[in-house]
Design a protein around this nucleic acid. Structure first.
Lengths: 250, 250
DNA sequence: TAAATAGTGTCTTTGAGACACTATGAC
DNA sequence: GTCATAGTGTCTCAAAGACACTATTTA
């Protein structure tokens, strides 16, 4: 069949410029009550020695699969072991400015990943220079990765408001206090414990009780909190809005 | 310099599979109080004779520029004439499943465009078979374009809630009634005129008064409505929520 | 005991939505 | 006149947030 020939004949020769497609992953987790992002140290030029988002070329697989594969490679986690499969992964957006990679035209499809606290990397991955970095300690990054990270953080902060995404940062069973710590870490501000508690329980389908309580109180005292699981809601109604930040960007 | 050689050596040969990058545009406008999308009729295989979203290959330009260029080509509008420059354009998401195009691996970056009522196409574009179609009359589309359109509509409906996007569908000066018609067309349901009126005026920065009134009343009577311009808000606070649809997807 | 936390009660304020009503202008 | 629309008033109910308070647990 001459389909591909027709295809290639049908557009402007300028389009023949070779293009590479990569995925980059903004992987977020919470450690010690602080939001962390997974970064890798680049070995090769350009930006050798710089920190960058994990990522790589898309192979013969879907974009989603490429992102999950890259995440597995950089964290050393294997599919089927449970941990990796519970990571929430969603497409963020694509970045394709000419010149964003000095070598050739590269269009990168960025992904956003949310995970419960994961072990340190290097345990088997091919990027030995990978580590979790608190998002407020991230310095300059290679390529346009700083902008991608900023977009990812914006998205994450917004999605906590109207989706039950926060449950992706905690284990299967969790306390309301742990859930509140997720919001505090991602939004960077404390939330009123009492009102948060009531609010979470009042949103239909956000969490469901396990009937159990934690075996221990908090580290610094307090009663044994009850345990909850994620509910079946995919959107929060009414939403859990952020403390009003100057009433929107004007 | 051997940079590009290093680059190409550094990844799996499977990645050498040639990839093409395209942009596809979900262009929405409102005509006669109904939401329309711009479609083009395909001339070449595959899907010859099918309707599809306008789009094409990314050239040596940014992704945003490619989307605006494709939109200009298909609508016949020229940049600099004003109309095209006022079209709101934003990236939707990317689609790259292997097999979505039967000829080769194609990753498409989809864009969403919102425009005030535009003239019919064919007036100079290279796609003579382009036309505006009411979204509820769109049949099967080529490739995965039906899914892209559905995602675009979801995004548009959601963004009306918390951004002043509706003003992108009307002219520079508009009445509250016209704005309400935009919401009604995009959401597919009537809104209570009185409550909508008060709500729009109560959101800081959504609209600002021009001090003028329309020169004529409505087609079927009524007083001369006041005229407004878009305000400087980029987010609506509080948001203008849709009439509650079954309280979220569960 | 002191301090921190879980969970609940209550009050105030804001906003959403239902409904009603007046005034205006096209036909 | 008739009818649709613009714009406002008012009432009710839900929800957000401030604050207070009790009970429980750790150190």
């Amino acid at each position: 069949m001459s389909d591909e020939r027709d295809f290639l004949d049908s557009y402007d020769p300028a389009a023949y410029t070779p293009v590479a497609v990569t995925v980059d992953v903004v992987a977020l987790t919470i450690r010690h009550s602080r939001l962390h992002v997974l970064l890798v140290e680049r070995g090769a030029h350009p930006f050798a020695g710089w920190w960058a988002l994990p990522g790589g070329f898309v192979q013969q697989e879907s974009l989603d699969a490429a992102a999950r594969r890259e995440l597995a490679e950089e964290t050393g986690l294997r599919s089927g072991e449970g941990l990796l499969d519970r990571v929430h992964l969603e497409q963020l957006r694509s970045y394709g400015d000419p010149g964003r990679d000095p070598r050739m035209r590269v269009v990168s499809v960025a992904y956003l990943a949310f995970a419960p606290s994961l072990p340190d990397p290097q345990s088997g991955g091919d990027a030995s220079g990978a580590r979790w970095v608190p998002v407020d300690e991230v310095g300059e990054l290679a390529f346009d990765h700083a902008a991608i990270l900023a977009d990812g953080l914006d998205r994450a902060r917004a999605k906590l408001e109207y989706t039950p995404l926060a449950t992706a940062f905690v284990g299967d069973e969790f306390t309301i206090g742990e859930l509140r710590a997720v919001y505090a870490a991602v939004w960077g501000e404390e939330l009123h414990a009492g009102n948060f508690h009531r609010k979470v329980l009042s949103v239909p389908g956000f969490v469901e009780s396990t009937g159990e309580t934690s075996t221990r109180g908090g580290e610094r005292g307090g009663p044994k909190p009850r345990l909850y699981r994620a509910g079946d809601a995919r959107l929060l109604h009414p939403a859990l809005l952020r403390p009003t930040r100057e009433d929107g960007v004007r």
